[in-house]
Amino acid sequence: MKFLVLGAGRMGYAAVFDLIRSPKVEQVVVADFDIKRVETLLDLLADPKIVPVELDVKKFDEVVKLMAACDACISCVTYHHNYDLAKAALEAGTHFVDLGGNEAMVAKEFLLDDLAKERGISIMPDLGLAPGMVSMLAVNAADSLDELYEMRIRVGGLPVDPEGPLKYAQFFAIDGLINEYVEDCTVIRDGKEFQVPSLTDIEEIEFPKPFGKLEAFNTSGGISTLPKTYGGKIQHMDYKTIRYKGHCEQMYLLKHLGLMSSEPVQLPSGKVVPRDLLSDLLIKTLPQDEPDVVLVRVTVTGIKEREPVQIVWECIDYNDQADKVSAMMRMTAFPASIVAQMMARGDITDRGVLKQETSVPVKLFLAELESRGIKLTMTERAPVAT
């Protein structure tokens, strides 16, 4: 099998790291506009399967040519490009997955569904940790219940040793982080779908030591198509991001001041886009390459054999320092790599623009995660308040 990975940043590195370890993978083409990043990746991973390429993903014909030589493509570039890249995959006849990050962009990709079915291609947007892996955990739990009541999904990537007022570090693209804090969030309350502001509805959540009591709050995009999939079948559904206490208040202040706005502001020195300024400052000031941990808790409540039941999936995953793969890289890029390989092998037979919660064989997916050392625990208990 041959694969194309677009983007040689953190997530691209992790996707390549995973792909080259599969004995069925013959070749991994890694493409980035910055050839130095590709060369750095090649130096670190040093595997003959890797083929480095300099590529601007905005050059449609060049992208199509690279895709056409591969069985599947994983997009690890910013979400702005994913619709055009999905169209390129259709042109090339290549299966395609991306890490998502923006609900409006994902909605555009779903407009390609009929064409993808006609051409026998599988396209799966929004496939990483959240959305992605957590959706499959929720579905696995829901499928074991006779009646479904609620889904509560909580996810966070955190520095092991928090520093500074934000108690945070750079684990993925800052543009994507700001997007999560800016856009409204989709929730289901009392059976009805709503849009609620991000950085609201703070709750306390507790994990075992050394983490203790943390906070979780609304952020956008974490559950992608789940509300549509379960619309009319569930009373409550929401997604919240986990952070160290105090982070939400700090970010809300920045948002309230307008520093996350994309509207240009005229200053004596010239025009400035506040969001661009904030992004630049966060990139310069937030720690990078810090040891990290990903916390996951997916709680699904319903009825099983006439009794109320709560199923809880949990994971605490630390970075792999020896292989230079952070926890966020593992938990985001490995699911994309696993599913891309499933498409190429024929384990996923659905065609069109697909939802991960309905098209991925969940038991096989979970087995693949376990084989990579990602340990998930599932507990079934009597319902408790979440």
Score class of each variant (00 low, 15 high):
K192N: 06
L277I: 09
M342D: 00
A88E: 06
F3Q: 00
P162K: 11
L282G: 04
C248K: 13
V16Q: 03
G258M: 08
H95S: 05
V77L: 02
L267P: 00
A68C: 04
D146T: 07
T299Y: 06
E193V: 15
I123F: 00
K209E: 11
K192P: 00
G346K: 08
K233S: 05
Y230K: 08
E147A: 13
H256S: 15
A68D: 03
M105N: 09
K209M: 11
L254K: 07
F365Q: 03
V384K: 15
V312Q: 07
A8P: 01
R119G: 02
L41A: 02
L6A: 04
A72E: 05
E109M: 15
M251F: 12
E206K: 15
T301A: 10
I205K: 09
F172H: 10
C315Y: 08
D34K: 12
S224F: 04
C185T: 12
T241K: 13
L286A: 01
V353G: 03
L177V: 11
L111C: 05
V273R: 10
G231K: 14
E380F: 12
D113E: 00
L42E: 01
L115Q: 09
Y239E: 02
K87C: 07
M378V: 08
A14S: 14
R351N: 04
V51C: 01
K58G: 06
F217D: 04
L199Y: 08
R152N: 14
T40A: 14
I121A: 02
M133G: 07
I50M: 03
S22G: 08
I234G: 05
D317L: 14
Y244V: 04
R306A: 14
G232A: 09
P48S: 09
I234T: 03
D289L: 14
T301V: 12
G352L: 07
G157H: 12
P197S: 10
L137T: 00
S22C: 11
M133W: 10
P291C: 14
H247T: 14
M124I: 09
D47F: 05
L257Y: 11
A14E: 02
P287I: 14
P335R: 11
G270L: 10
V16N: 01
E147D: 10
E118W: 00
S279N: 13
A216W: 10
I205N: 05
M237A: 11
V63G: 01
I35G: 06
T186Q: 14
Y318N: 06
E150R: 15
F194N: 01
A322Q: 13
G232S: 08
A104M: 10
K36Q: 13
I50G: 01
T285A: 12
R330W: 08
G346N: 10
M151G: 01
L254D: 02
M136V: 00
K375M: 11
L199D: 05
D18E: 14
A141N: 03
R297D: 05
S261A: 04
S122L: 03
S135I: 03
M329T: 01
S262Q: 14
V196R: 03
I223T: 10
M133E: 07
D71F: 05
L158S: 00
Q356E: 09
M1R: 12
D289K: 15
V298K: 04
V325S: 03
K49M: 01
I153F: 09
P274S: 11
D71E: 04
I188L: 06
F194C: 04
I74E: 01
E368K: 15
E150K: 15
P208T: 06
P287T: 13
S337A: 15
V57R: 02
V294A: 09
